[in-house]
Deep mutational scan, measured.
Amino acid sequence: MQRVNMIMAESPGLITICLLGYLLSAECTVFLDHENANKILNRPKRYNSGKLEEFVQGNLERECMEEKCSFEEAREVFENTERTTEFWKQYVDGDQCESNPCLNGGSCKDDINSYECWCPFGFEGKNCELDVTCNIKNGRCEQFCKNSADNKVVCSCTEGYRLAENQKSCEPAVPFPCGRVSVSQTSKLTRAETVFPDVDYVNSTEAETILDNITQSTQSFNDFTRVVGGEDAKPGQFPWQVVLNGKVDAFCGGSIVNEKWIVTAAHCVETGVKITVVAGEHNIEETEHTEQKRNVIRIIPHHNYNAAINKYNHDIALLELDEPLVLNSYVTPICIADKEYTNIFLKFGSGYVSGWGRVFHKGRSALVLQYLRVPLVDRATCLRSTKFTIYNNMFCAGFHEGGRDSCQGDSGGPHVTEVEGTSFLTGIISWGEECAMKGKYGIYTKVSRYVNWIKEKTKLT
Protein backbone atom coordinates (compact mmCIF):
# COMPACT_ATOMS: atom_id res chain seq x y z
CA MET A 1 0.00 0.00 0.00
CA GLN A 2 2.91 2.29 0.80
CA ARG A 3 4.31 1.55 -2.65
CA VAL A 4 1.05 2.46 -4.39
CA ASN A 5 0.85 5.71 -2.55
CA MET A 6 4.36 6.56 -3.61
CA ILE A 7 3.52 5.85 -7.28
CA MET A 8 0.38 8.09 -7.17
CA ALA A 9 2.32 10.85 -5.56
CA GLU A 10 5.13 10.63 -8.04
CA SER A 11 2.97 10.08 -11.23
CA PRO A 12 -0.30 12.12 -11.10
CA GLY A 13 -0.50 12.26 -14.90
CA LEU A 14 -0.66 8.53 -15.06
CA ILE A 15 -3.66 8.48 -12.78
CA THR A 16 -5.51 11.04 -14.94
CA ILE A 17 -4.95 9.01 -18.10
CA CYS A 18 -6.28 5.89 -16.44
CA LEU A 19 -9.45 7.58 -15.24
CA LEU A 20 -10.14 9.11 -18.67
CA GLY A 21 -9.78 5.74 -20.34
CA TYR A 22 -12.25 4.24 -17.92
CA LEU A 23 -14.87 6.92 -18.61
CA LEU A 24 -14.57 6.66 -22.39
CA SER A 25 -15.04 2.92 -22.22
CA ALA A 26 -18.15 3.21 -20.07
CA GLU A 27 -21.72 3.27 -21.73
CA CYS A 28 -23.42 6.70 -21.61
CA THR A 29 -26.95 6.55 -20.17
CA VAL A 30 -27.53 10.31 -19.44
CA PHE A 31 -27.91 11.70 -23.03
CA LEU A 32 -30.30 10.49 -25.76
CA ASP A 33 -29.08 9.73 -29.18
CA HIS A 34 -29.59 12.25 -32.04
CA GLU A 35 -32.73 10.61 -33.50
CA ASN A 36 -34.62 10.35 -30.19
CA ALA A 37 -33.63 13.83 -29.14
CA ASN A 38 -35.29 15.28 -32.27
CA LYS A 39 -38.56 13.50 -31.43
CA ILE A 40 -38.78 15.40 -28.15
CA LEU A 41 -37.78 18.80 -29.58
CA ASN A 42 -39.90 18.55 -32.71
CA ARG A 43 -39.88 22.30 -33.69
CA PRO A 44 -40.19 23.51 -37.31
CA LYS A 45 -37.15 25.10 -38.75
CA ARG A 46 -37.35 28.89 -39.01
CA TYR A 47 -37.00 30.73 -42.31
CA ASN A 48 -33.34 31.55 -41.85
CA SER A 49 -32.43 28.72 -39.55
CA GLY A 50 -28.72 28.25 -39.33
CA LYS A 51 -27.96 31.78 -40.52
CA LEU A 52 -27.26 35.00 -38.70
CA GLU A 53 -30.46 37.16 -38.68
CA GLU A 54 -28.46 40.35 -39.10
CA PHE A 55 -27.54 39.26 -42.63
CA VAL A 56 -31.01 38.25 -43.99
CA GLN A 57 -34.16 40.15 -44.95
CA GLY A 58 -36.69 40.55 -42.12
CA ASN A 59 -39.79 38.36 -41.89
CA LEU A 60 -43.09 39.93 -40.69
CA GLU A 61 -44.25 36.81 -38.86
CA ARG A 62 -40.94 36.31 -37.09
CA GLU A 63 -40.32 39.95 -36.30
CA CYS A 64 -43.78 41.21 -35.26
CA MET A 65 -46.29 38.36 -34.94
CA GLU A 66 -44.43 35.79 -32.82
CA GLU A 67 -43.43 38.58 -30.48
CA LYS A 68 -43.90 42.34 -30.24
CA CYS A 69 -41.53 44.22 -32.47
CA SER A 70 -40.16 47.73 -32.59
CA PHE A 71 -40.54 50.20 -35.43
CA GLU A 72 -36.94 49.48 -36.47
CA GLU A 73 -37.62 45.75 -36.65
CA ALA A 74 -40.71 46.36 -38.77
CA ARG A 75 -38.61 48.65 -40.97
CA GLU A 76 -36.29 45.71 -41.66
CA VAL A 77 -39.26 43.80 -43.13
CA PHE A 78 -40.63 46.53 -45.42
CA GLU A 79 -37.32 48.25 -46.18
CA ASN A 80 -39.41 51.38 -46.82
CA THR A 81 -40.30 54.05 -44.27
CA GLU A 82 -43.66 54.98 -45.83
CA ARG A 83 -44.92 51.37 -45.96
CA THR A 84 -43.61 50.75 -42.47
CA THR A 85 -45.50 53.77 -41.16
CA GLU A 86 -48.77 52.56 -42.70
CA PHE A 87 -48.28 49.13 -41.09
CA TRP A 88 -47.26 50.65 -37.76
CA LYS A 89 -50.46 52.75 -37.46
CA GLN A 90 -52.63 49.63 -37.48
CA TYR A 91 -50.13 47.43 -35.59
CA VAL A 92 -49.97 49.71 -32.56
CA ASP A 93 -53.70 50.35 -31.88
CA GLY A 94 -55.81 48.66 -34.57
CA ASP A 95 -57.53 50.09 -37.65
CA GLN A 96 -59.32 53.36 -36.77
CA CYS A 97 -60.99 53.31 -40.22
CA GLU A 98 -62.77 50.01 -39.60
CA SER A 99 -66.02 51.82 -38.66
CA ASN A 100 -65.99 53.86 -41.91
CA PRO A 101 -66.18 57.26 -40.17
CA CYS A 102 -65.77 59.37 -43.33
CA LEU A 103 -69.03 60.64 -44.84
CA ASN A 104 -70.06 61.74 -48.34
CA GLY A 105 -67.64 59.44 -50.13
CA GLY A 106 -64.58 60.46 -48.10
CA SER A 107 -61.53 58.15 -47.99
CA CYS A 108 -60.22 57.14 -44.56
CA LYS A 109 -56.51 56.95 -43.68
CA ASP A 110 -55.61 55.24 -40.40
CA ASP A 111 -53.33 56.91 -37.85
CA ILE A 112 -52.14 56.15 -34.33
CA ASN A 113 -55.12 56.66 -31.98
CA SER A 114 -56.75 58.67 -34.76
CA TYR A 115 -57.67 58.78 -38.45
CA GLU A 116 -57.77 61.28 -41.29
CA CYS A 117 -60.57 61.71 -43.85
CA TRP A 118 -59.64 62.72 -47.38
CA CYS A 119 -62.78 64.53 -48.52
CA PRO A 120 -64.11 64.77 -52.09
CA PHE A 121 -64.62 68.16 -53.68
CA GLY A 122 -67.36 70.10 -51.95
CA PHE A 123 -66.93 68.67 -48.45
CA GLU A 124 -64.67 69.24 -45.48
CA GLY A 125 -64.55 68.68 -41.72
CA LYS A 126 -63.25 65.86 -39.51
CA ASN A 127 -65.61 63.37 -41.19
CA CYS A 128 -66.30 65.28 -44.46
CA GLU A 129 -69.64 66.29 -42.96
CA LEU A 130 -69.49 69.97 -43.96
CA ASP A 131 -70.71 71.13 -47.37
CA VAL A 132 -68.51 73.83 -48.86
CA THR A 133 -70.17 74.25 -52.24
CA CYS A 134 -73.70 75.06 -53.34
CA ASN A 135 -73.41 72.58 -56.21
CA ILE A 136 -74.07 69.61 -53.92
CA LYS A 137 -77.53 69.41 -52.35
CA ASN A 138 -77.75 73.20 -52.34
CA GLY A 139 -75.01 73.26 -49.69
CA ARG A 140 -77.59 71.74 -47.30
CA CYS A 141 -79.27 75.15 -47.25
CA GLU A 142 -83.04 75.00 -46.86
CA GLN A 143 -83.70 77.83 -49.30
CA PHE A 144 -80.88 79.80 -50.93
CA CYS A 145 -77.16 79.10 -51.14
CA LYS A 146 -74.22 81.26 -52.16
CA ASN A 147 -70.51 80.50 -52.28
CA SER A 148 -68.41 83.10 -50.48
CA ALA A 149 -65.10 84.47 -51.74
CA ASP A 150 -63.23 81.64 -49.97
CA ASN A 151 -65.62 79.08 -51.51
CA LYS A 152 -67.59 78.49 -48.32
CA VAL A 153 -71.35 77.90 -48.26
CA VAL A 154 -73.44 80.85 -47.09
CA CYS A 155 -77.15 80.11 -46.65
CA SER A 156 -79.91 82.71 -46.78
CA CYS A 157 -83.69 82.90 -46.71
CA THR A 158 -86.44 84.68 -48.58
CA GLU A 159 -88.12 87.77 -47.15
CA GLY A 160 -90.03 87.05 -43.95
CA TYR A 161 -87.63 84.33 -42.83
CA ARG A 162 -84.32 84.25 -40.96
CA LEU A 163 -81.58 81.66 -40.62
CA ALA A 164 -81.98 79.26 -37.73
CA GLU A 165 -79.20 78.57 -35.25
CA ASN A 166 -77.74 75.85 -37.47
CA GLN A 167 -77.21 78.46 -40.23
CA LYS A 168 -78.90 76.10 -42.72
CA SER A 169 -82.62 76.08 -41.96
CA CYS A 170 -85.02 78.99 -42.32
CA GLU A 171 -87.53 79.96 -39.65
CA PRO A 172 -90.36 82.51 -39.79
CA ALA A 173 -89.42 86.04 -38.79
CA VAL A 174 -92.97 87.44 -39.17
CA PRO A 175 -96.37 86.12 -38.04
CA PHE A 176 -97.49 85.05 -41.53
CA PRO A 177 -94.47 84.46 -43.76
CA CYS A 178 -94.89 83.82 -47.46
CA GLY A 179 -95.54 80.37 -48.83
CA ARG A 180 -96.45 78.75 -45.51
CA VAL A 181 -99.67 76.93 -44.67
CA SER A 182 -100.52 77.82 -41.07
CA VAL A 183 -104.10 76.58 -40.61
CA SER A 184 -103.76 73.69 -38.18
CA GLN A 185 -106.23 71.29 -39.80
CA THR A 186 -104.59 71.70 -43.21
CA SER A 187 -100.98 71.48 -42.11
CA LYS A 188 -101.27 67.68 -42.25
CA LEU A 189 -102.21 67.99 -45.91
CA THR A 190 -99.05 69.84 -46.85
CA ARG A 191 -97.73 68.38 -50.06
CA ALA A 192 -94.63 66.23 -50.18
CA GLU A 193 -91.51 68.27 -49.52
CA THR A 194 -89.05 68.71 -52.33
CA VAL A 195 -85.42 67.99 -51.50
CA PHE A 196 -82.59 69.64 -53.42
CA PRO A 197 -80.79 67.37 -55.87
CA ASP A 198 -77.19 67.85 -56.94
CA VAL A 199 -77.35 70.86 -59.26
CA ASP A 200 -74.90 72.50 -61.62
CA TYR A 201 -75.51 76.05 -60.41
CA VAL A 202 -73.15 77.55 -62.92
CA ASN A 203 -75.38 76.45 -65.79
CA SER A 204 -78.71 76.44 -63.97
CA THR A 205 -80.19 79.40 -65.80
CA GLU A 206 -81.12 78.27 -69.26
CA ALA A 207 -79.49 80.06 -72.15
CA GLU A 208 -82.77 81.08 -73.69
CA THR A 209 -83.53 84.05 -75.88
CA ILE A 210 -86.82 85.78 -75.25
CA LEU A 211 -88.43 86.35 -78.60
CA ASP A 212 -89.38 89.95 -77.89
CA ASN A 213 -89.16 91.20 -81.45
CA ILE A 214 -91.18 88.50 -83.19
CA THR A 215 -94.23 89.84 -84.95
CA GLN A 216 -96.99 87.37 -85.48
CA SER A 217 -100.61 87.57 -86.50
CA THR A 218 -103.15 86.94 -83.80
CA GLN A 219 -103.79 83.22 -83.46
CA SER A 220 -107.25 81.82 -82.89
CA PHE A 221 -107.11 79.66 -79.77
CA ASN A 222 -109.95 77.52 -78.49
CA ASP A 223 -110.74 77.91 -74.80
CA PHE A 224 -107.32 79.29 -74.04
CA THR A 225 -108.35 81.10 -70.87
CA ARG A 226 -107.59 77.91 -69.09
CA VAL A 227 -108.68 72.31 -62.46
CA VAL A 228 -109.84 69.19 -64.22
CA GLY A 229 -109.33 65.98 -62.26
CA GLY A 230 -108.20 67.87 -59.16
CA GLU A 231 -109.17 67.64 -55.51
CA ASP A 232 -111.07 69.94 -53.18
CA ALA A 233 -108.67 72.11 -51.24
CA LYS A 234 -109.15 72.61 -47.51
CA PRO A 235 -109.73 76.14 -46.18
CA GLY A 236 -106.35 77.86 -45.89
CA GLN A 237 -104.47 75.20 -47.85
CA PHE A 238 -103.55 77.71 -50.60
CA PRO A 239 -103.75 81.03 -48.74
CA TRP A 240 -102.00 82.96 -51.55
CA GLN A 241 -104.78 82.15 -54.04
CA VAL A 242 -107.25 84.91 -54.95
CA VAL A 243 -110.26 85.00 -57.26
CA LEU A 244 -110.99 87.84 -59.70
CA ASN A 245 -114.57 89.04 -60.19
CA GLY A 246 -115.53 91.40 -63.01
CA LYS A 247 -118.23 91.19 -65.64
CA VAL A 248 -118.63 87.64 -64.36
CA ASP A 249 -117.54 86.13 -61.08
CA ALA A 250 -114.47 83.90 -60.84
CA PHE A 251 -113.37 84.68 -64.39
CA CYS A 252 -109.68 84.34 -63.45
CA GLY A 253 -107.37 83.69 -60.54
CA GLY A 254 -104.28 85.33 -59.13
CA SER A 255 -101.65 85.19 -56.37
CA ILE A 256 -100.86 87.52 -53.48
CA VAL A 257 -97.42 89.14 -53.85
CA ASN A 258 -97.83 91.28 -50.73
CA GLU A 259 -100.56 93.22 -48.93
CA LYS A 260 -101.05 95.63 -51.84
CA TRP A 261 -100.28 93.63 -54.98
CA ILE A 262 -101.63 90.66 -56.94
CA VAL A 263 -99.96 88.88 -59.87
CA THR A 264 -102.13 87.34 -62.59
CA ALA A 265 -102.22 86.68 -66.35
CA ALA A 266 -102.27 89.74 -68.61
CA HIS A 267 -104.95 88.25 -70.86
CA CYS A 268 -107.33 88.19 -67.87
CA VAL A 269 -107.59 91.96 -67.51
CA GLU A 270 -109.12 94.62 -69.73
CA THR A 271 -108.64 98.34 -69.49
CA GLY A 272 -111.75 100.05 -68.15
CA VAL A 273 -113.31 96.92 -66.65
CA LYS A 274 -113.79 97.06 -62.89
CA ILE A 275 -112.14 94.15 -61.10
CA THR A 276 -112.68 93.01 -57.53
CA VAL A 277 -110.15 90.75 -55.83
CA VAL A 278 -111.33 88.30 -53.17
CA ALA A 279 -108.64 86.80 -50.91
CA GLY A 280 -109.26 84.10 -48.32
CA GLU A 281 -111.92 82.53 -50.55
CA HIS A 282 -112.73 78.82 -50.43
CA ASN A 283 -116.33 78.17 -51.52
CA ILE A 284 -117.43 80.92 -53.89
CA GLU A 285 -121.10 80.36 -53.09
CA GLU A 286 -120.76 80.56 -49.32
CA THR A 287 -119.69 83.25 -46.89
CA GLU A 288 -117.08 81.68 -44.63
CA HIS A 289 -115.93 84.90 -42.89
CA THR A 290 -112.37 84.42 -44.09
CA GLU A 291 -112.86 86.47 -47.27
CA GLN A 292 -111.35 89.91 -47.87
CA LYS A 293 -112.55 91.95 -50.86
CA ARG A 294 -110.51 94.72 -52.46
CA ASN A 295 -110.93 96.86 -55.55
CA VAL A 296 -108.21 97.08 -58.20
CA ILE A 297 -107.03 100.66 -58.68
CA ARG A 298 -104.19 100.03 -61.14
CA ILE A 299 -103.34 97.39 -63.72
CA ILE A 300 -99.74 96.97 -64.93
CA PRO A 301 -99.33 94.47 -67.78
CA HIS A 302 -95.75 93.55 -68.61
CA HIS A 303 -94.24 96.17 -70.91
CA ASN A 304 -93.65 93.54 -73.64
CA TYR A 305 -97.23 92.29 -73.59
CA ASN A 306 -99.21 93.11 -76.73
CA ALA A 307 -102.53 91.30 -77.11
CA ALA A 308 -102.87 92.56 -80.70
CA ILE A 309 -99.79 90.55 -81.67
CA ASN A 310 -100.11 87.56 -79.35
CA LYS A 311 -102.55 87.24 -76.48
CA TYR A 312 -100.37 84.85 -74.49
CA ASN A 313 -96.79 86.03 -75.00
CA HIS A 314 -95.49 87.74 -71.83
CA ASP A 315 -98.80 86.82 -70.24
CA ILE A 316 -98.33 88.44 -66.85
CA ALA A 317 -99.80 91.51 -65.11
CA LEU A 318 -99.82 93.15 -61.69
CA LEU A 319 -102.90 94.49 -59.89
CA GLU A 320 -102.65 97.20 -57.24
CA LEU A 321 -105.31 97.10 -54.51
CA ASP A 322 -107.11 100.08 -53.01
CA GLU A 323 -106.50 98.90 -49.43
CA PRO A 324 -103.86 96.55 -48.03
CA LEU A 325 -104.90 93.01 -47.25
CA VAL A 326 -104.75 91.90 -43.62
CA LEU A 327 -102.47 88.89 -43.53
CA ASN A 328 -103.60 85.84 -41.59
CA SER A 329 -103.76 82.05 -41.94
CA TYR A 330 -106.20 82.36 -44.86
CA VAL A 331 -104.55 85.33 -46.58
CA THR A 332 -100.80 84.84 -47.04
CA PRO A 333 -98.41 85.92 -49.85
CA ILE A 334 -96.67 83.44 -52.12
CA CYS A 335 -92.87 83.46 -52.00
CA ILE A 336 -90.98 84.77 -55.03
CA ALA A 337 -87.31 83.84 -55.30
CA ASP A 338 -84.71 85.43 -57.57
CA LYS A 339 -84.42 84.46 -61.23
CA GLU A 340 -81.85 81.72 -60.69
CA TYR A 341 -83.66 79.94 -57.89
CA THR A 342 -87.11 80.29 -59.47
CA ASN A 343 -85.70 78.47 -62.48
CA ILE A 344 -84.07 75.83 -60.26
CA PHE A 345 -87.30 75.26 -58.35
CA LEU A 346 -89.22 74.81 -61.61
CA LYS A 347 -86.75 72.10 -62.64
CA PHE A 348 -87.59 70.10 -59.54
CA GLY A 349 -90.14 68.54 -61.86
CA SER A 350 -93.61 69.06 -60.43
CA GLY A 351 -95.74 71.86 -59.09
CA TYR A 352 -99.23 72.58 -57.82
CA VAL A 353 -101.92 74.50 -59.67
CA SER A 354 -105.15 75.72 -58.11
CA GLY A 355 -108.30 77.57 -59.08
CA TRP A 356 -112.08 77.65 -59.43
CA GLY A 357 -112.06 76.91 -63.16
CA ARG A 358 -114.19 74.41 -65.00
CA VAL A 359 -114.02 70.88 -63.64
CA PHE A 360 -114.22 69.47 -67.19
CA HIS A 361 -114.00 70.89 -70.72
CA LYS A 362 -116.95 73.23 -71.36
CA GLY A 363 -118.41 72.06 -68.06
CA ARG A 364 -119.46 73.88 -64.91
CA SER A 365 -117.06 75.90 -62.79
CA ALA A 366 -115.95 74.58 -59.42
CA LEU A 367 -117.55 75.98 -56.29
CA VAL A 368 -114.75 74.86 -53.97
CA LEU A 369 -111.12 75.68 -54.72
CA GLN A 370 -109.50 72.83 -56.65
CA TYR A 371 -105.84 71.84 -56.72
CA LEU A 372 -103.74 69.43 -58.74
CA ARG A 373 -100.13 68.33 -58.84
CA VAL A 374 -98.77 68.49 -62.38
CA PRO A 375 -95.41 67.25 -63.71
CA LEU A 376 -93.13 69.47 -65.77
CA VAL A 377 -92.98 68.44 -69.44
CA ASP A 378 -89.67 68.61 -71.29
CA ARG A 379 -89.49 71.29 -73.94
CA ALA A 380 -89.10 68.94 -76.90
CA THR A 381 -92.27 67.05 -75.97
CA CYS A 382 -94.04 70.33 -75.35
CA LEU A 383 -93.17 71.68 -78.81
CA ARG A 384 -94.30 68.47 -80.53
CA SER A 385 -97.66 68.54 -78.77
CA THR A 386 -99.02 71.66 -80.49
CA LYS A 387 -98.97 73.58 -83.75
CA PHE A 388 -98.91 76.86 -81.84
CA THR A 389 -95.77 78.75 -80.82
CA ILE A 390 -94.30 77.94 -77.42
CA TYR A 391 -92.03 80.85 -76.53
CA ASN A 392 -89.04 80.54 -74.22
CA ASN A 393 -90.95 82.44 -71.55
CA MET A 394 -93.51 79.61 -71.41
CA PHE A 395 -93.39 76.02 -70.17
CA CYS A 396 -95.64 72.96 -70.37
CA ALA A 397 -96.96 70.89 -67.49
CA GLY A 398 -99.53 68.13 -67.27
CA PHE A 399 -100.24 64.51 -68.17
CA HIS A 400 -99.89 62.95 -71.60
CA GLU A 401 -102.84 60.62 -70.97
CA GLY A 402 -105.10 63.59 -70.27
CA GLY A 403 -107.86 63.65 -67.68
CA ARG A 404 -106.17 66.17 -65.39
CA ASP A 405 -105.35 69.77 -66.20
CA SER A 406 -106.04 73.42 -65.49
CA CYS A 407 -109.05 74.77 -67.40
CA GLN A 408 -111.18 77.82 -68.16
CA GLY A 409 -111.41 80.13 -65.18
CA ASP A 410 -108.06 79.01 -63.74
CA SER A 411 -106.06 81.49 -65.85
CA GLY A 412 -103.88 83.84 -63.86
CA GLY A 413 -103.71 81.41 -60.97
CA PRO A 414 -100.48 80.08 -59.49
CA HIS A 415 -98.17 77.25 -60.41
CA VAL A 416 -96.14 76.77 -57.23
CA THR A 417 -93.25 74.54 -56.21
CA GLU A 418 -92.94 73.50 -52.60
CA VAL A 419 -89.39 73.66 -51.24
CA GLU A 420 -88.86 72.12 -47.81
CA GLY A 421 -92.35 73.14 -46.71
CA THR A 422 -92.34 76.63 -48.26
CA SER A 423 -94.08 77.31 -51.60
CA PHE A 424 -92.56 79.51 -54.31
CA LEU A 425 -94.27 80.91 -57.40
CA THR A 426 -92.83 79.24 -60.51
CA GLY A 427 -95.55 79.77 -63.11
CA ILE A 428 -98.85 81.44 -64.00
CA ILE A 429 -101.68 79.48 -65.62
CA SER A 430 -101.95 80.88 -69.15
CA TRP A 431 -103.48 78.75 -71.91
CA GLY A 432 -103.97 75.33 -73.49
CA GLU A 433 -105.88 73.44 -76.16
CA GLU A 434 -109.19 72.38 -74.64
CA CYS A 435 -108.76 70.94 -71.13
CA ALA A 436 -107.25 67.65 -70.01
CA MET A 437 -107.08 66.45 -73.61
CA LYS A 438 -104.84 63.44 -74.32
CA GLY A 439 -101.48 64.48 -75.75
CA LYS A 440 -102.04 68.14 -74.83
CA TYR A 441 -100.60 70.08 -71.93
CA GLY A 442 -101.28 73.21 -69.94
CA ILE A 443 -99.09 76.16 -70.93
CA TYR A 444 -97.73 78.44 -68.20
CA THR A 445 -95.91 81.75 -68.05
CA LYS A 446 -92.38 81.14 -66.77
CA VAL A 447 -92.10 83.38 -63.71
CA SER A 448 -88.29 83.19 -63.58
CA ARG A 449 -88.25 85.58 -66.57
CA TYR A 450 -90.18 88.24 -64.68
CA VAL A 451 -89.14 88.14 -61.02
CA ASN A 452 -87.03 91.30 -61.22
CA TRP A 453 -89.91 93.16 -62.85
CA ILE A 454 -92.37 91.88 -60.23
CA LYS A 455 -90.18 92.91 -57.31
CA GLU A 456 -89.42 96.32 -58.79
CA LYS A 457 -93.09 97.17 -59.38
CA THR A 458 -94.51 95.80 -56.13
CA LYS A 459 -92.22 97.44 -53.59
CA LEU A 460 -94.13 98.60 -50.53
CA THR A 461 -93.47 102.28 -49.74
Rank of each mutant, 00 (worst) to 15 (best):
R3M: 13
E10K: 15
S11P: 09
I17K: 02
L20T: 03
T29S: 13
H34V: 10
H34Q: 09
A37G: 15
A37N: 14
K39M: 11
I40E: 13
I40G: 15
I40N: 15
R43V: 13
N48I: 05
N48Y: 13
S49K: 10
F55Y: 11
V56Q: 15
Q57L: 09
G58F: 07
M65V: 13
M65H: 11
E67L: 06
K68A: 15
C69F: 03
S70A: 14
E76Y: 08
E79F: 08
R83F: 08
T84K: 09
Q90D: 12
D93F: 06
G94E: 12
E98R: 10
S99H: 12
P101M: 03
P101E: 02
C102Q: 01
N104S: 03
G105A: 04
K109E: 06
K109Y: 04
D110F: 05
D111C: 04
P120D: 04
F121P: 04
F123C: 00
E124F: 04
E129M: 02
N135A: 14
K137W: 07
R140N: 15
E142S: 12
Q143F: 03
Q143A: 02
A149Q: 11
C157P: 01
T158H: 09
E159N: 07
A164N: 07
A164Y: 03
K168E: 07
S169K: 08
C170I: 01
P172Y: 05
K188F: 11
T190D: 08
D198M: 07
D200M: 06
Y201V: 14
A207N: 13
E208M: 10
T209D: 13
I210Q: 11
L211C: 09
N213Y: 07
I214R: 09
T218W: 12
Q219H: 13
R226V: 08
V227A: 11
V227T: 11
V228L: 08
G229V: 08
G230Y: 11
G230Q: 08
K234G: 10
P235Y: 07
Q237A: 08
P239G: 02
W240D: 00
G246Y: 06
K247E: 08
F251R: 09
G253Q: 08
S255G: 06
V257M: 03
V257T: 01
E259A: 09
W261R: 00
W261M: 02
I262P: 00
V269L: 12
T271H: 14
K274V: 07
I275Q: 03
I275T: 05
V277G: 01
N283M: 11
I284V: 11
E285V: 11
E286W: 08
T290D: 04
T290N: 12
V296W: 01
V296P: 03
R298Q: 07
I299L: 05
I299C: 05
I299A: 06
I300M: 07
I300G: 01
N304W: 12
I309H: 11
I309C: 06
K311E: 05
Y312N: 07
D315T: 02
L318F: 00
L318A: 03
L319G: 02
L321S: 01
L321Q: 00
E323F: 10
L327M: 12
N328R: 01
S329L: 04
V331A: 06
T332E: 03
T332H: 05
T332V: 14
P333W: 01
C335N: 00
I336L: 10
I336K: 00
A337V: 03
K339M: 15
K339Q: 14
Y341E: 05
T342M: 03
F348K: 08
F348E: 15
S350L: 14
V353D: 01
W356Q: 03
W356F: 11
F360S: 14
F360M: 14
H361D: 15
H361M: 11
G363R: 06
R364T: 13
L369Q: 07
Y371H: 12
L376N: 04
D378W: 03
R379Y: 11
A380T: 12
C382T: 02
R384P: 07
K387M: 08
F388P: 06
T389Y: 10
T389F: 10
T389D: 08
I390L: 14
I390W: 08
Y391M: 14
N393P: 02
N393M: 03
N393K: 03
F395T: 02
A397Y: 02
G402V: 15
G402D: 10
D405E: 15
S406F: 15
Q408S: 12
G409S: 12
G409T: 07
D410P: 15
S411A: 11
G412C: 06
G413Y: 15
G413L: 06
E418F: 08
V419G: 01
F424A: 02
G427T: 01
E433R: 07
C435Q: 03
C435L: 03
A436E: 11
K438V: 08
G439F: 03
I443L: 12
Y444N: 02
K446N: 10
Y450Q: 00
Y450N: 01
W453V: 00
W453A: 00
I454K: 01
K455F: 05
E456C: 07
T458A: 05
T461D: 15
